[in-house]
Design a protein around this nucleic acid. Sequence first.
DNA 1: CGGTTTTGACCGGCGC
DNA 2: GCGCCGGTCAAAACCG
Length: 257
Amino acid sequence: MSEEFKQFYYDQTFSDDDQLRNTSRAFPYSGDNTFTFSTDSSDNGLQMFDPTSYVNFTDFLHGSADYNIFKDGEKPAVEAVGGGEVPATTNSSGSSSTSEAAEDDGYLNKGKKKKKMAEDGEESSKKEVKAKKKKEKKQKEPRFTFMTKSEVDHLEDGYRWRKYGQKAVKNSPNPRSYYRCTTGKCPVKKRLERSFIDPSIVITTYEGQHNHHEPAARRGDMASMFAPPSTLALALSQLQENQSLPPEHSIQMPYQI
DNA sequence: CGGTTTTGACCGGCGC
DNA sequence: GCGCCGGTCAAAACCG
């Protein structure tokens, strides 16, 4: 584990609750555009907690929760997305603009760009890659990290995901899974892992922003097509939209590492 | 049969 | 340069 985390960890004595809070505070996710907060999906709705107090997740999303810890006092650098309106309700009777069938053109990955890197026309592809690398270096996508107390690993968030990798996490017995949104050419990625401090906590990191409004409906699954969006899905969409509001209306993350 | 998961190879960045 | 590490690719397996 990272040095800063190790130090934090060893310096603290945790009560049960504190351990959760401090986990969110100390877990070594860091960097610009990364926000860490915690949720508890145990039963009715999401509850979020921060280093000082438990607070309702909805309050948090609406900015009515009293938070003012924010790195550099700045608004997160998130691309405006200019979405539509989403009702502020969290209960299941959400009107919402669900099944609009935004018609995903199905999942198709970019062509097999590299057949075999050894021979054939490798120089062109290599050049391309190199040029691309030079040009954009490494763009840091906005990321959100959730810590959710949950039995299930993969929380339903209304979108469809395809797993594309799994890796062992250093110093943790739990693997990390990598997912991509399967709708069209949506660039959003997501990773999932269980906390090695408290295995009942699932850590979900979203990266990027969806370029489509509606999650892809599952074919042949009428129940899911007409079901109201999950609490988490609603929360995420609101979160995304709030990000593009002027600073005075933007939500404030409970804690920024 | 089409889409998803699995899983080892591969790749680039970074510290030494 | 080398090895570690986080992340991604892609072929094969899997599955409804």
